[in-house]
Structure formats: C-alpha cells, structure tokens
Amino acid sequence: MNLDIFLQQLVNGASLGSMYALIAIGYTMVYGVLRLINFAHGDIMMVGAFLTFFAMQSGIPFEAALIIGIAGAAIIGILTDKIAYKPLREAPKISLLITAIGISFFLENLFTVLFGSTPKAFKAPEYLTKIFHLGNIYLPISVIIIPTVTLLILAIVLWILYKTKYGMAIRALAFDIQTVKLMGIDADKIIMIVFIIGSSLAAIGGVFYAVSYPSIDPLMGIIVGLKAFAAAVLGGIGSVGGAVVGGFILGFTEIFVVAMFPELGGYKDAFAFFFLILVLLFKPTGIMGQDLERGRF
C-alpha cells in the first residue's frame, strides 16, 4: 500500500467511523440513563434517512430536508420513549429490552409495508459528491465534510453535557435516578432530552450513510445499528467520548481490512465484532468506560 492509497483509505475510514460514531452516541446516552440497549436506535437512523429522502423528493432542498429528517427522527424517538419505554421504568430491564426489539421490528416492517423493500437511490447534492483531488488522491468532498461535521457535533454534545444544567442532569441520571428527582428535576424530561439528542444524531448519521452509499432501504438500520452498538460498547457504554473513539476505530478497521486483504472483504462485518470481543476480554468496561453501577442503587 503506497502513501496515496493509505491516505485515501484513512479519509474513507474517518468518514465511515463518523457515521458509526454519530449513531453510537445515541446508544451510549440512552444506555446511560435507562440501562437499555435501545435496539430500535438503528431504525431511528433509517427513519431519519427516509424522511430526508421523501422531503427532497417533494422538492425541498437538501439542507431543509435534513432538518425535517432530524426533527422527524427526534419525534419518533420521543414517542417510542413515551409510549413504549416510559410505562416500563420500574419493570425488569429485560422487559425493556424485549420492547425495544419489538419497536425495531415494528419500524422496519412498517417502512417495508409503506414504501417497499427495494433500495431507493439517494441523490445527494452535488457539492457533497463532487470529486476533488489532492495530488494523486481522488475523493468526494463528503468524506471531508462528514468527519468535520461529526467532530463539531461531538463538541456541541460535550458542551451540553458538561456546561449546561440539563447536561449535568443527564450525567447525574446515569448514576442515580432517585436522587435526581430529589433535586426537583423531572427525570422523564431529562430522558426525553436524551432521546432527542440521540435520535437527531442518528438521523444525521443515517443521511451521511445515504449520501455515501448512496441508497436507502427499510432494513439499512440493522447492520449499521449493530456496528454502531459495537462501537459504543468498544468505547465504553455510557461514555460519549468512548462512543466516538469506538466508532472511529471500527470505521478505520473495516476500511483497512478491506484495503489490505481484499480477499477478506466479505468478512469485514465480522471484524467489528472480533475487535469488540478482543477489547472486552481485556477491558470489560470498554476503552473509556467506567463501571456505571458504582454508586447506583
């Protein structure tokens, strides 16, 4: 592999890792406050991509369509929490998990019934897909824009978590719900904010995915969601920084495995999980994770 190809793959890896990272943040934040692996999260990403797609089809420009996709995903995220998860706050966690799997099947099948299972071509605006070259490297502009936007979003999320009272409450909630309520804080409202943030970022990740691949289908959330979940666990579930690190690690690994060993290309998805198992063997809480149960009662 010469330097040009290496750099090219590096950028591709960053771009793919960004999508995993954006989706992983939602997994990790919801897990933090509810101790729930939200299996429907990958499908929320699909919903965001579909709504953006339909908005564009009706003639709305890409940027506005993206906002509609984000808002729609956020609303679906809030609704799943209010309708499906909230009644189960006191129930055993396994009930919550099974409900999440149910929501996931529901969204996948609903979109299949409504819009068919054939992939739809996603026509990204030209300024994202235009190819530019640096020396011998040829790349679509999107591979630069996607990681840049992702890091910007990460900065905003960290700012919310560490500088605003709502963010502090999200962090406090990860350790102790009862005591958060004793502060006069409406815990359900804080959980809703988590769903808004997580679902919005998933929608952005979904649209980035649609721009890069460039097609969408009702089941697109399954494998991407699973890998983003792996990224969240790899980075340390509950840690937003960890989710991003995990996302980038998976993105780079996947791209480089395919680049270096093309004959292993078909196994690229397996590598994500092989990597996950390897890290968990040595550090069960993930790269940046803390033991969340410490201090929780």
Binding site: K165, M168, A169, A172, M183
Partner: peptide, 21 residues
C-alpha cells in the same frame, strides 16, 4: 437522603448546580 447520595461523577459545584436546578 440516607447515605448522602452525592453525584460522585459530578464536581462539588455541579452537585450544587443540580440542587439549584
């Protein structure tokens, strides 16, 4: 509460901030 239930992952100032939510 019993056992104080300080938010151990939040700073002293952030704990107070939560009290004044």
């Amino acid at each position: 509460p019993e056992g104080r239930k300080i938010f151990i992952n939040l700073t002293v100032e952030e704990n107070l901030r939560m009290g004044a939510f």
